[in-house]
Design a protein around this nucleic acid. Structure first.
Lengths: 189, 189, 189, 189
DNA sequence: CATGAATGAGTTTTCATTCAT
DNA sequence: GATGAATGAAAACTCATTCAT
């Protein structure tokens, strides 16, 4: 059954997000997924395999999302926003990815690590291109497009993921406005 | 000897930063510190005790730094910069703290967790106060001081810590200029 | 399975009796019980827990035995004999209890220690009562009932347990006769 | 210095008596003896060597004492009493010997074990001889001299050592009287 | 000499993986 | 198939012994 497999993947995601890869025991995952410990090994060779599956699926999901949103039309700013935002919209999962990416450096297959880097660089590269156009256009001030793209992506993450850890989450609209304020217009008068 | 204790603490910091708490074995720490495994237990009761000592010392260091810099004079922007920057200047250590803070939620004593939260809130609170004054002054646009302080601190972290993970580090001057550009003036024309 | 738990308990009893608590390794117990080392921890939290379980079960067994036999009728001497004897009939186990009782003072829970003392005092107290009656009756010579009860119990132990360490064991009948000879009639003409 | 050596031996005796051989750490002994841990190894090769020294000295002491008292004159009962009693007079030490003899079976050198057995058998043998004479004399009832000697020795031990664990110790006179009562005359009227 | 900090072999304990039911 | 009891390799921890001071 494929439902069972999903169950286990979800349980593992949950536990990895909370305790990290090493900090999660197979027993925990099995308990959260409400299956026997042995069942887990019907679907995944090892605990590490499970990790890799999760990373792979997260990456695939986010890539699809990024690809889809990257082609959308609109002004440059709208494009930037939709591209950045869409890839980050899976809040919890991105948080997990962030957490795992550190341990993956230790445990993940080179393939996982490569894919992870690729997708991050893909989004940043896409944004960078549009920033370069905008600078050439004169629609924004001259600035290093690499750094600016990097900071822009992180700002979204900060407002989406970090902020909500200890505060009520912001709506998409609020986030969009804040990015406009902090990155576009500046807070100086 | 106190040098030996420092050795062990440094080795543990290094290993915890690389592999996390659970991912680090006592043997590893001992090997990195070039001491016997038993030696470690002369200075720390348990592996967890070692973790707590590290967290405690990191917190103390950063608090001292923050307190010292917070009183420095200058314009409001300079104050903000010096306060934010100084607390984040211990790049590696902050990175470690960030990493550990997740596992500490699992293992650390409530005291560690409280101190960690307190120091973060202390800096943000200090910045928030100055932002409120600045808004009242009319030196900056009206904006939510809480969110702005939060974003400001995080932007420093992004430029200091995250950026350097895959790029050559930025100088203090560059960081200062970039903050001015992104947060103050905005990239929009 | 409960059989496995018993196996482990028996193995531990055997090893504790031979080498003491500290002198017994968990590996030894596992090997004697013909189970993996990890199996042991499915049934007992720690090695100390295993010790306490053994002490608890020994105490329970002996208490049951003592209670059962204490009510049996007959002459005063028969009563004394059945009470004393029955509690000591579990030779090996009493020997173990004796051995452990010293280490238990170091490691056992206060509950174990209390129970251990209580049961010893219970038997001696019971015998003491009957000795007092016997003295009042004039069925035996005037003597300190406390000391006499104490010596009587020990004599049984000596004949049951100590003797058999280097000699062929005595039958119940022989023991009964010897007690009659040494304690009751005396060897003097 | 030989005083230092005695100090360490005494400390070890004390600790072995309390916690057993395995249960005693070298640190403990050093602390009790108020010397550095290293000092201990100036006088004894290993911890086991220390144990053997103790056993050897205890045996020597007791043998000397036994030999001395065995020749003393008097009635048969007096001879028995003095022989049995003298060997047991070193209460604490005999208790220690008893405790160690179990662990020694595991750890001691064959020489220690042999000596230990020899001395016990020596006393019992001596008493046995005199009992045989007494039976032949008709001064006591016919009885198995082996068992009787064994029981006699043990009864002394019970009154000397066991009793005092939880009661005020008995005087030599009291012990002598009790042996007379229980073993010689019997408590039956 | 006397010491106790340093060590690593040997213990206890944990947990990913297997396999009989 | 699904399970979880059983396992042993690997991790945390202890302590007899050594050796620089």
């Amino acid at each position: 059954m494929d439902q069972r497999r999903e169950n286990i993947l979800d349980a593992a995601k949950k536990s990895f997000a909370l305790f990290g890869y090493k900090g999660t025991t197979v027993d925990q995952i099995a308990k959260i997924a409400s299956v026997g410990k042995g069942t887990l090994y019907l679907y995944f060779e090892t605990k590490e395999d499970l990790l890799n599956e999760i990373v792979k699926s997260l990456i695939a999901e986010m890539r699809k999302l990024a690809d889809a949103s990257i082609s959308k039309g609109g002004t440059i700013m709208e494009k930037l926003h939709s591209a950045t935002y869409s890839i980050l919209v899976y809040r919890k999962e991105h948080e997990l990815l962030l957490k795992l990416s550190q341990e993956v450096a230790q445990f993940g297959t080179p393939a996982s690590q490569h894919a992870l880097r690729e997708i991050e660089e893909g989004v940043i590269g896409y944004i960078k291109q549009h920033l370069e156009i905008a600078v050439a256009n004169g629609s924004i001030k001259p600035c290093d497009p690499e750094i600016t793209a990097f900071v822009l992506v992180r700002m979204y993450l900060v407002l989406l993921v970090d902020w909500e850890r200890k505060h009520p989450p912001l709506t998409n609209e609020q986030i969009s406005d804040l990015i406009q304020l902090y990155m576009m217009d500046g807070i100086a008068l």
